[in-house]
């Protein structure tokens, strides 16, 4: 919650070392503005993100989870992001069975040159989560 009592979502962001994290870095260096709602966890590849990681984030009080990886075909490990996509779909299915809105999770491909896109993604996602409200209270 901010000073005004307005809801500020807590987002856990899994960023891949080669694209997502570098993109976020570029956004910072280029001074693109985006809301300070994300808590970044750097991972070597978006393919490492298991459904369990996302569930654990929700368990520990996150309102949304963002996963960023390289564009399809650009993965540093050739096909890691294809695994990420498959696992992400599985996660969305599990969340909808649990009765959690699948819009609370988001998978985006952000390359190291797309600092602007990163800031846009975070801004959009924050707006969406504000609409959905806090996870614990919903």
């Amino acid at each position: 919650m901010s000073e005004k009592g307005e809801f500020v979502p807590r987002i856990v962001a899994f960023l891949c070392n080669w694209c997502g994290y570098a993109g976020a870095d570029l956004a910072g260096v280029s001074r693109f503005q985006y809301p300070a709602t994300i808590r970044v966890i750097r991972i070597m590849c978006s393919g490492r993100v298991q459904p369990s990681f996302i569930l654990e984030a929700f368990k520990d009080g996150a309102d949304g989870v963002l996963v960023c990886g390289c564009h399809i075909g650009d993965c540093h490990y050739i096909s890691g992001n294809e695994y990420a996509e498959r696992r992400f779909k599985k996660t969305q299915k599990i969340l909808s069975i649990l009765g959690i809105d699948p819009r609370r999770v988001r998978l985006e491909w952000v390359s190291a040159a797309e600092g602007m896109k990163f800031s846009q993604v975070v801004t959009e996602f924050t707006e969406q989560l504000k609409e959905l409200g806090p996870f614990e209270a919903s």
């Binding site: 298991q50 459904p51 369990s52 368990k59 599990i94 069975i97 649990l98 009765g99 959690i100």
Partner: peptide, 23 residues
Amino acid sequence: THDCFVSNFSNIMAKENVIPKLP
């Protein structure tokens, strides 16, 4: 195993606001 999948989903299910539904 499975990166603690079972304990994680059980913990989420145990939250009061989470009501699962059979697809």
